[in-house]
């Protein structure tokens, strides 16, 4: 057995409830136990979303905001060519980052799941991949500066090798550095769910494929890949939403030279234009939720845990 968890794959007794509660008594305990979670989510998730939707119809002066019911913010948003450019840039970041994190994450997970033989080694290497996730993202972004800067390691090395004459200017503060940082920060979100699903693949299926004459590549393509789809979907949900909602990576890694939707919102906030920020936020949220809704059609998250 190479299952990371050391036990057999979970039987059908999933957390997904089978027995429906009967009457008030059965519900009451559940409600009590779920109450703290409900309160937090109601106060700090649902209420803020409602507030943002409300404020998106408000008006703003230079210093303050006032209640109103007007569509000015949305009219301005949809009437401005900047909006479409910025949304396009956001999709571009999401798409490129997704493709890169998926290929890297899949390869890493595949290596861990099928090529590392000892379970201890598997856990150790897996932890090696996950530890950076628990350290500061901002520090991890800062740490690219000595690499990518004008006189950074990358430019120095390339010049030493005689590959370039002058330092490359596009290494730092560019789309390149933004995407590099995204891949650096978020590949983990692909590795973990994909690895998790791969570990549940019954090894006898792979043997069966081989016994029937499938090459390694054919097994990968026709057996492993389809069975890994749920993990890929979960990873995709994470990466796409993290990149779509980001504003800090783009701001820091592009030296404020590139924009995405998150930065559009944070710029408005900095100018105290809350209604306009709220309108952009509503459109962003709608976009993200639509993407998630589509992705969730392909996977049952609760079954995959």
């Amino acid at each position: 057995m190479t299952d990371l968890t050391g036990d057999t794959p979970p039987p059908e007794t999933t957390a997904a409830p089978k027995r429906a509660g009967h009457g008030l008594g059965a519900n009451l305990l559940g409600w009590l136990q779920a109450a703290p979670l409900t309160v937090i989510l109601a106060g700090f998730l649902v209420a803020p979303i409602i507030m943002i939707v409300i404020v998106s119809f408000w008006g703003a002066t230079e210093f303050s905001i006032y209640p109103a019911f007007q569509f000015d913010n949305y009219e301005f948003l949809f009437g401005s060519p900047v909006t479409y450019r910025v949304f396009l840039a956001t999709f571009k970041y999401a798409l490129i980052t997704w493709a890169l994190t998926l290929s890297i994450g899949f390869t890493v997970a595949y290596f861990l799941a099928f090529h590392v033989r000892s379970q201890t080694m598997q856990i150790a290497l897996f932890l090696l991949c996950t530890i950076p996730f628990w350290t500061s993202n901002i520090i991890r972004m800062i740490s690219w500066i000595p690499f990518l800067g004008r006189n950074g390691i990358a430019n120095q090395t390339l010049q030493d090798w005689g590959l370039i004459d002058a330092p490359l200017e596009w290494l730092l503060y560019s789309d390149f550095s933004v995407i590099l940082a995204f891949v650096h920060l978020y590949t983990l979100f692909m590795v973990v769910p994909i690895f998790n699903t791969m570990m549940r693949i019954d090894k006898s299926l792979l043997e069966a494929a081989r016994d029937n004459g499938a090459s390694g590549l054919q097994t990968l393509r026709h057996v492993i890949l389809p069975l890994t789809k749920p993990g890929i979907m979960i990873g995709t949900i994470f990466v796409v939403t993290l990149v779509m909602g980001d504003f800090i990576t783009v701001r820091f890694m592009s030296g404020s030279q590139k924009a995405n939707v998150g930065r559009l919102i944070s710029n408005d906030i900095a100018l105290l234009q809350y209604p306009s920020a709220a309108a952009t936020a509503v459109v962003l949220l709608a976009t993200v939720l639509i993407i998630i809704a589509v992705l969730l059609r392909f996977v049952n998250i609760r079954k995959e845990l």
Binding site: A15, P17, K18, R19, A20, G21, A26, N27, L29, G30, W31, L32, Q33, A34, L37, T38, L41, F44, L45, V46, A47, P48, I49, M51, I52, I237, F238, T241, M244, G245, D246, F247, G262, I265, S266, I269, Y274, A277, A278, A281, L284, L285, V288, L289, I292, I301, R302
Partner: peptide
């Protein structure tokens, strides 16, 4: 709580997922 079905468990579950995927700046702003 989630080991048994209770009224509203489905909604609560999707709220938790929303909480995970919602752009962080929206929480901050709201």
């Amino acid at each position: 709580a989630f080991r048994k079905r209770f009224k509203g468990s489905g909604v609560l579950f999707y709220l938790a997922i929303t909480s995970l995927v919602i752009p962080s700046i929206l929480i901050s702003l709201g």
